[in-house]
Amino acid sequence: MKFLGAISKYQKLSPEQRSFIGNAQRKFCSTPAELLEFFKPMAVYDKSCDEARAQLLNFVILCGVLSFLGLIAIGVLSEDMPMVIPIVGIIFLMIFPALILRWRLGRVDIHNNLREFVVPMVNLIGQDTAAEQKINLELDLSGKKLEGKLRTRTKDDPGWLAYPKTTTSIYDDPWFRMTTDLVDGSKLMLTIDDQITTIDRTYKSISGKIKSKSKAKVKHMIRASLALKHKKYAIASQNDLQSFGHELKLKDGANRQVFCLKQTVKTDDIDAFVDPQLCVALLGRIFMNVQPAGQKGS
């Protein structure tokens, strides 16, 4: 009965946290500790909510299977054991409250990116900021297929009663922006833009039936930038940085040199979360490949 735990965790959330779960969009400018304090109860709640929903789904399936078996049993046994009918009825009726509960919990669910990506990322970056340093964080965990995020939609319709018909929709979802100053004086920027492509196909099967199929493709475009102080790091030339390959962009400023690395990850699961490891690896590659500035003076 995990839903009880999920409900009680939800009730313990502050109105501010509930409203964040509600619209899932917000700009923050807070210290890592403040951000974690805000996110942690939601992360814990989200995990138990997901577990509760999975459990409810299993329960519904179990009830369905039992009802089906029950129907057979009624046919065979009802004359000897009339008790079987109400029991099967009860089992069948249990499906509906479970489904409603699962749907209700789904309404107050938040994308797993919050607990699997945002919280660990804030946590890790917070390790390398000065104690009172604030992190600027823009989050948009509202749906990825909202009409507002639609970039293009192309319909390929060969005509009335002609098949296949396909609708391709491309959505842009820039859902994560993080900037802050690290303890070495570097400026960090991390962004993730998701691009979602859905293909809805309606076609005629060989047997002549009209069928529809929907497919989604997700691209996570991760960008990590570090603006390193000349005072702290030796200026790198493109030659020094061949190990980075082509995806590195270098920009020279008066006081800083900006390193920007990009990586794109593809998946078919629209609910998939981004592994923090990917961002950490990009930043790590930059720090591993720069040299500290020579000691001044002496």
Binding site: K40, A43, V44, K47, V119, N123, L124, G126
Partner: peptide
């Protein structure tokens, strides 16, 4: 585990 995972303590294991 929840307390650990969403806390700064987790960073030390991760690192």
């Amino acid at each position: 585990y929840d307390d650990y995972y969403y806390d700064t303590a987790w960073c030390y294991g991760y690192r």
